[in-house]
C-alpha cells in the first residue's frame, strides 16, 4: 500500500543543508505495522512527516512515495489535504501540546469529521462519542465538553488517537506516542493503538527510540541512523539475528526483565554525526566498536545478505566471523576505533 523509494529530506539552515533523511526506502502493506527505531535526531520523525507532507517551509524532499499506487512525494503538498485525516493521519508525541488549549475536545474531534465527511452535527457528535468510548475514555459525554487541560496525559493521548482515527484513515503514523506519558500508561496506549490498528486493518508506522516498544507490536522494524536506514528486518529476525552494531547497541540500552535490577545499562558512546557534513564511509563508524579502516573510507551498501527480507549495511556485521574478528582486533588495540570521547 505504501511504497517509499529513496526518499530524501533536507532543511535549509544558516549552517548549511541539513540532510535529515538521506535515501530511505521501504514498503508497507495494509494491516502491517512498521516500527521505526533510532536515537533522537536520526531522522525518524522527519521521515514520517515527510511521508505525511507535513514539513515546514524550509524543507525540501525528493524521491518517490506511492500511496496505493498514487505518487504523493512531489514538491507540492496541496493535494495532500485530501489524504490527511481520511487516508493517513498522525498521533503526536506530546498530547499536552497537540491539543488546542482553547477548544473543547469534542469540537476537535468533530471538526475533521464534519470537514471531511460533511456529516450533520448530531451525527458527528454521535461518532465522537463512539470514538471516545472506543479509545477507552469513561464518561465520554462529559469529556466531550471538556478542555484538554482538564484531562490527564493518558486521557489526552486517547483523545489524540480518537481524533486521528475519526475519519477512518487507512494509515496511521504514531510518532513517539508514549514518550511523554507515565510508564504505567505507556503500555495501555500502545495496546490501544495495536488494538485499533488490528480492528480497522490499518497500516501503522510506529516511530520510537525504544526497541522494547516495538518488540512485540511491529511486524517489521527499520533501524535508522543519521538519516539512513541501516538495518531492516521482520521483528523476530531482527531480534534473533541482528547484524548491525548500532542495532545491537540500541538493544543493549533497553532494560530487561531477566536482568538483575542493578545491572548497568550500556549506553552508546559518542553522539550522532552532524547531518550537515556527515562522515565519509559508514556514518556509525566513529562510534562503532567493530569499526575498521574500511568503514571510515567506504560506506557499506544496504542490502540483503543471508536471510531474505533482512537487509543491513555493515562491513563487519555482528554475529559473523568478520565481525567477531574486527571486534577482537579493536579490543586488543585499546581505544583505536571507539569514537566517543
Amino acid at each position: 500500500m505504501l511504497e517509499v523509494k529513496d526518499v530524501r529530506t533536507s532543511f535549509k539552515t544558516d549552517r548549511g543543508l541539513v540532510k535529515a533523511v538521506d535515501g530511505v526506502s521501504f514498503t508497507l502493506e495494509r494491516g502491517e505495522t512498521l516500527g521505526v527505531v533510532g536515537e533522537s535526531g536520526c531522522g525518524k520523525s522527519v521521515l514520517s512527516k515527510t511521508i505525511m507532507g507535513l514539513l515546514p517551509s524550509n524543507a525540501s524532499r525528493s524521491g518517490s512515495i506511492k500511496f496505493e499506487g498514487q505518487e504523493i512525494g512531489g514538491p507540492s503538498i496541496k493535494h495532500m489535504r485530501d489524504f490527511w485525516g481520511t487516508q493517513m493521519s498522525m498521533v503526536f508525541q506530546d498530547p499536552m501540546t497537540a491539543l488546542n488549549p482553547v477548544m473543547k475536545v469534542g469540537k476537535q474531534i468533530t471538526e475533521s469529521l464534519r470537514h471531511h465527511l460533511d456529516v450533520s452535527r448530531e451525527f458527528a457528535n454521535e461518532t465522537a462519542l463512539q470514538l471516545l468510548s472506543s479509545v477507552g475514555i469513561p464518561e465520554p459525554e462529559r469529556r466531550l465538553k471538556q478542555y484538554a487541560f482538564e484531562m490527564s496525559g493518558g486521557m489526552r493521548q486517547r483523545v489524540m488517537i480518537a481524533i486521528a482515527l475519526a475519519c477512518g484513515p487507512k494509515m496511521l503514523f504514531a510518532d513517539e506516542p508514549t514518550t511523554a506519558l507515565d510508564v504505567t500508561v505507556q503500555a495501555q496506549i500502545l495496546d490501544l493503538l495495536e488494538a485499533q490498528q488490528a480492528e480497522r486493518f490499518m497500516a501503522m508506522i510506529l516511530v520510537t527510540h525504544d526497541l522494547g516498544v516495538v518488540a512485540g507490536r511491529a511486524d517489521n522494524i527499520m533501524v535508522m541512523y543519521a538519516g539512513q536506514s541501516i538495518e531492516m528486518a521482520p521483528t523476530r529476525t531482527l531480534f534473533s539475528q541482528m547484524r548491525h552494531p548500532y542495532t545491537e547497541a540500541l538493544l543493549k540500552s533497553i532494560p530487561k526483565l531477566n536482568q538483575a535490577s542493578h545491572t548497568r545499562l550500556d549506553a552508546i558512546g559518542g553522539r550522532p554525526p552532524d547531518l550537515v557534513n556527515p562522515p565519509v564511509g559508514c556514518r556509525f563508524a566513529p562510534r562503532c566498536p567493530y569499526a575498521q579502516a574500511k568503514c571510515h573510507q567506504e560506506a557499506p551498501p544496504l542490502m540483503v545478505h543471508d536471510t531474505p527480507g533482512h537487509e543491513y549495511a555493515c562491513w563487519f556485521p555482528v554475529g559473523t566471523p568478520q565481525g567477531a574478528e574486527a571486534l577482537a582486533k579493536n579490543q586488543g588495540s585499546i581505544g583505536t576505533a571507539v569514537g566517543g570521547q
Binding site: L54, F83, E111, S112
Partner: peptide, 26 residues
C-alpha cells in the same frame, strides 16, 4: 508552531480554518 496546529493540519484542515479556529482563539 505548536503541535496542535500541525495536528489539525494532519487532519486535513485548510489553512484559513486553522488560522481562524486553531490559532486565532489562542
Amino acid at each position: 508552531q505548536r503541535e496542535f496546529v500541525m495536528a489539525a493540519k494532519s487532519q486535513g484542515a485548510k489553512p484559513f480554518r486553522i488560522m481562524l479556529r486553531e490559532v486565532l482563539p489562542n
